[in-house]
Each structure stands twice: as structure tokens, then as C-alpha cells.
Amino acid sequence: MARAASPRRKLITTLAAWTVALIIFFPVLWMILTSFKTEASAVAMPPQFLSADWTLENYVEVWGRSAYPRFFWNSVVIAVGSTLLGLVIAIPAAWAMAFVPGKRTKDLLMWMLSTKMMPAVAVMIPIYLLFLRFGLLDTRIGLVLVLMLMNLPIIIWMLYTYFKEIPAEILEAARMDGASLWNEILYVLTPMAVPGIASTMLLNIILAWNEAFWTITLTTTRAAPLSAFIASFSAPQGLFYAKLSAASAMAILPILILGWFSQKQLVRGLTFGAVK
């Protein structure tokens, strides 16, 4: 609802909007600034803005002299791995439900969504004990499995809403021309589905990267991703503000960038297609 506005009004709303946006963003900005200060400068009182001692040392130290690269790599493997595995299982299901809907398809979709509402704590103990039994505790493959299962309903729902938008007539035309089911999927459906699959992948990488219940409860050191690492890092209060900030900045940067690209899909994906 863009309307012509007077220049004066536009100036006031622009100022107000920027003020609000900067307030909301400020904590992230402050963390990034802190990550470039020396430890002494980071905790100086009164807080230093422009007069701070700037340095890159925190990044060098966090990345070079700790196990940080391992945590980072674990995050990448777990987020990407669980998403890809989820896609492999979800794509056929979403395809079938979108193009060959049966009487119970809607019930099935709602049931899948309802599994998302099962509280994680309720299944934590059995999962922990099963992981203990099968040697999956503190392994990346274990976390890949759990995060895949956790996000599978969202993956299926997102793909389903995207597939629904592909006109069925095109598929029927392909069928008339004698395309086999396999050819239909490979040459007709796939090219049209790629954008939807890509946004689903992006959103689920974000969700898996930021997950902080299973990663904390199921890992200790070897397979711990960044979320588990930062959660335990913050225990020694006030000692390593600048380093903590540098570690945090590197932990959120990849997702911040991915997230900014997927803004539009985010609304659609997380509302299961109810708001577009």
C-alpha cells in the first residue's frame, strides 16, 4: 500500500524507521565491534566506541589457537548433512502428495506437522540411552540423524507448497507425449522444482545450524557444533569478552548471509505456506 506522501512525512517516517531498525540491530553490531577490540578495551568503563583499541588478534587467536575450526566444521557437516538427507527422503513424499493426492493426504500432512509439536525433552532420555547403546553419542552422524528427523516435517511441508504451484497440466502433457514416470520426474518436474528445493535447503540449513537443544545434550567435545561450543563458552563470565565476541561473530556470519538471501522464502517456509 504505497501511497504518495509529502516529503516532510517521508523524512519523519524514514528517520523513525531507521532508528527502530538500528535499535533492533544494535546488539549484533555491538558484538561485532567488541570482537575487534582488545580485551581491556572491551570491558573498559565507560564503554569505548570510537576511541577503542582496535585489533584483529581475537580472530587470529580464536581460529588459530583453539579447537574452533573443528566446531565450525562440525556445524557445517551437521547442518548440510541433515538437510541433504532430509531432502532425499522428503522430495519423493512431497512430490507424491502434491501430484497424486489421495483422500487422506491432508490428514497425513497435518499429522506430520503435529510431530513437530512433540516436546524434545520428552524423547531426550530414550534418544540419549539409544545413542549410548549404539555408540552414537558425540558423533556427527548421530546429530545428522536427529536434526534430520526434527526438521523433516518442515522440509516436507515446504516442498509440498512449492510443488503444488507447478501446474499439473504440464505433467499431464508430458504423460500424453509418452514420457515415463522417471522421465517425467527427471526432465519436466526437476527443472521447475529447483527454486523451491533450493529455498527449502537454505531455510533448513539455517534451522539446523542454529539448533541448540540436541546439539547441547548429545555432544561433548568431538562432534560439538558451534551452538554447543558457545553455550558452554559463556560460563567464565567477563573474562574473554573480545574473544567470545569474535567466536560468536564467526558463528553467526555464514547464517546471517544465507538468511538475508532467503528472507522471502523464510516467511513462506516457516508459516507452512499460510503467508506468502
Partner: peptide, 13 residues
């Protein structure tokens, strides 16, 4: 972009 940023920050951070 500024307003949406906090949503992408992982809970521990």
C-alpha cells in the same frame, strides 16, 4: 536486512 538479523542469531549467541 537490519531488522531481520536477530532471527538468524543462534540462541546461545
Amino acid at each position: 536486512i537490519l531488522v531481520i538479523a536477530p532471527f538468524f542469531v543462534m540462541p546461545p549467541v
